[in-house]
Amino acid sequence: MLLVGLSADTVQRLPERDNRENLTPQVALGKKVWEDNNCLGCHTLLGEGAYFAPELGNVYVRYGNSKEAIKGFITSRPVDGIPGRRSMPQFNMSEEELDAIAEFLKYMSEIDTNDWPPNVQG
């Protein structure tokens, strides 16, 4: 019962913290692209997911507040990987999808997370 009560209270308070004023259709599409490619299967997002690849909740900040840098990284992945090393697959995303995922990651970086992660490295 307490869990339900506190959760209801949390849902009430979320608008102050969850950046929803910026929740555009493009961000929603970005979240869908994120899910359809199972990004969480390697990365963490606000610390949740797999621990094989870097945290992406703050990647927008880490890449110097640049959506172009995020898109550049995604498009430059070699199809056959990098010998001996971990490499992100080449997802062959459309320009629309790339813009959306970059916008989504920017959105994630603007959520009030009680100052997590401790530094820009994630």
Binding site: N38, A50, F52, V79, I82, R85, R86, S87, Q90
Partner: peptide
Amino acid sequence: QYVVGDFLFPEIPFNVARM
């Protein structure tokens, strides 16, 4: 795959193995 990053790549990427 944690130590030999390209093991089975791109046939079974890490995220698929993890799922």
